[in-house]
């Protein structure tokens, strides 16, 4: 079941993405209204991260399109912030917390000019919002997992975006950080921002998100949480493997065949 939205901020249309010919996402279709806190839920290997990477233009699709504010991503990058998984960077890198948060102020056209005082003040405010103002000169190699996550979040806040796409911000962090992040996301939503979060834990999903997207290579359901949290959909997402899809996917990879004719 997919709840259609009249005036969507995010629209994903018939999106198929494959890695080495093996489809990770298959014909995914959904749309999101503005001002929701949405979770992408599904088992491991369901293509959750792939979905938001495709939305950010980090991986390219075989078919379909993604539109944010009714535009392709390259035209609206300034309004979209991305929070990658913590594990994707080397935290031994010689940089301070503030250095990392200031990256949120980097822009393509302004890469050669200096950052202003205002940028720095904004970065500090963002650190405050995640409760890390006391750590601004701390080296990132000395942070705990939860603190690393909060730094990444502050960096995204510094972008002052309208849409936030986050990859597993709740993975492997302490309870305090979890609470901080959750409250912060709620505040952003109340300000009218649209937030889409990849989340692996079904238990907490109902509490956290007001819109839920169930994904397992294909889209199982997307809509307000009470419509989605029904046993039938959850079984479809988690229960049993989609043998047919897996077999056909393997066949595609083996024959190195495209998922679209043209």
């Amino acid at each position: 079941m997919t709840t259609k939205v009249a005036d969507p901020v995010i629209e994903v249309h018939d999106l198929t993405v494959s890695y080495q010919r093996k489809p990770a996402l298959w014909g995914v279709d959904f749309s999101l209204p503005s001002g929701v806190l949405a979770g992408i839920i599904g088992p491991n290997g369901a293509g959750k991260s792939t979905l938001i990477k495709a939305m950010m233009g980090l991986v390219s699709g075989d078919s379909g399109y993604v539109r944010l504010f009714n535009r392709p991503i390259d035209e609206v990058r300034g309004k979209v912030a991305y929070v990658p998984q913590r594990g994707t960077v080397d935290w031994d890198f010689p940089a301070s917390v503030l250095d990392v948060v200031l990256m949120g102020r980097f822009k393509k056209r302004r890469l050669f000019s200096r950052l202003s005082k205002a940028d720095e003040a904004l970065a500090l405010r963002c650190l405050e919002q995640v409760g890390m103002e006391g750590f601004k000169y701390r080296q990132i190699s000395q942070l705990s997992g939860g603190q690393q996550q909060r730094v990444f979040l502050a960096r995204a806040l510094a972008q002052q975006a309208e849409i936030y796409l986050m990859d597993e911000p709740f993975a492997g962090i302490d309870a305090t950080t979890e609470q901080t992040i959750f409250e912060l996301l709620g505040k952003l939503r109340d300000e009218g921002k649209t937030i889409l979060v990849v989340h692996h834990d079904l238990q907490s999903a109902y509490q956290y998100f007001d819109w839920i997207i169930l994904l397992n290579t294909q889209l199982v359901a997307s809509g307000p949480r009470s419509d989605i949290f029904v046993p039938d959909y959850l079984r479809k997402t988690y229960g049993g493997k989609l043998n047919m899809l897996t077999s056909v996917g393997e066949m595609l990879a083996e024959m190195e065949a495209p998922t679209r004719e043209k």
């Binding site: 298959w26 078919s63 024959m255």
Partner: peptide, 18 residues
């Protein structure tokens, strides 16, 4: 797979050979 019926033709064009 809950894919809308107006989206499935393209996909089937490729899969029918597989």
């Amino acid at each position: 797979m809950n894919i809308a019926s107006d989206h499935v033709h393209e996909d089937a064009e490729a899969i029918e050979h597989i």
